[in-house]
Design a protein around this nucleic acid. Structure first.
Lengths: 193, 193
DNA sequence: CCTTATCTTGAGTGTACATTCAAGATAAGG
DNA sequence: CCTTATCTTGAATGTACACTCAAGATAAGG
């Protein structure tokens, strides 16, 4: 009768950062023991194996992202300004030296696609949920007459998701703030037309 | 006095496919000996090490891509129809089960970013060259009055590059042909407006 | 304060990896 | 047809990895 001592959220966030930085394959268990300050046995007891840690870290990542998103869009203010601010925040992440400038979900799905069906599915589900979250905002914008119904909320959400995935990838080849800002502005125009 | 027996292009294309499918880290030398039908010693003699094989494969990939591109855009016909066909060909690649549905360059840069500065630089250079190739086409389109000068060729090329990177990533989360086609059509509209 | 269930510890295990190298094979030059 | 430089072969090497497990530590219940 003894209770686990470590802080699960802290451990998963540390793991999350490592996986984002090094990728799934190149994040060794040794690295994970270092960043979490847990011994192998504890990690295996808590998460079964490396894949278990990864899946739990993804869950934490998504929870954190949802929180961030909810904070930004909670107000019953106009949707579009929030959306613009959100897109700009992605640009800010991209130009920051931070390792979180890449998205754990897209980076991981690109890595494990065709190798691990279960992980791929989880990642895909989370990214689809993200797209749906975006679509909700576009629906709100339609209800508030901020955008036309020329395109459906779903269509706009898809295009924005594609654009943001692309923006993060593009930023790996060109990290100039002005260029990324321009792309973000053009993307905003495209999805609000 | 003896000449190497293997077909360098064949070997590199096989390596290229493996790297695209499994990623850099998870493509083992054993796998490479299998797909190239070469023994370790031969591979090391010809390419120095795994990284050497990878860099050579990237070079081959880019050469092949340039060839494909030149074939598509060689004609002094109108630019936009060719561009549309090119974008649609990316959609076709995305929905195909083929392992080449992902781009070796973007997948690799996402993987090795922050791990190997030399490889990152090579990939970044190649992707920038790709962007410039796209910009050339937009310049031609401007000269032929197919598009306005509201946006520069460079701007349009950047937006298209971003869109295509995003499209390939998005396809990993949603492989429905209609949705991807719609995104491609919307992307085409955005860059030719 | 003792029992017991559970957690923590970290050395140990087997496997897979990138790379090397010496022996054998083979083509060009004389 | 012999020499020799170069290529091919594949077993061997050392390292890094994911994962295990038995011994030790510690908290809750009685």
């Amino acid at each position: 009768m003894r209770v686990a001592e470590f802080d699960r959220e802290y451990v998963l966030r540390q793991a999350m950062i490592a996986f984002t930085q090094y990728g799934y394959a190149k994040t060794s268990m040794q690295k994970l023991t270092q960043v979490t300050a847990l011994h192998p046995g504890s990690l295996y007891a808590a998460f079964k194996n490396k894949k278990g840690i990864f899946l739990a870290a993804i869950e934490q990542y998504q929870a954190d992202r949802n929180q961030q998103f909810t904070n930004l869009f909670c107000a019953d203010k106009a949707v579009l300004p929030n959306l613009k601010a959100y897109i700009d925040s992605v640009v800010a992440e991209c130009v920051s030296g931070d390792s979180m400038k890449v998205c754990l979900l897209t980076k991981s799905i690109s890595e494990v696609e065709g190798q691990d069906e279960q992980i791929s599915q989880v990642l895909s589900d989370n990214l689809n949920a993200y797209e749906n979250t975006l679509a909700e905002q576009f629906n709100r914008a339609i209800l508030k007459n901020e955008i036309t119904t020329e395109y459906t909320a779903k269509q706009r959400a898809r295009f924005l998701a594609m654009g943001l995935y692309g923006l993060r990838t593009y930023a790996l080849t060109n990290n100039k703030r002005d260029d990324l800002k321009q792309l973000a502005d053009d993307l905003y125009i495209a999805i609000t037309k």
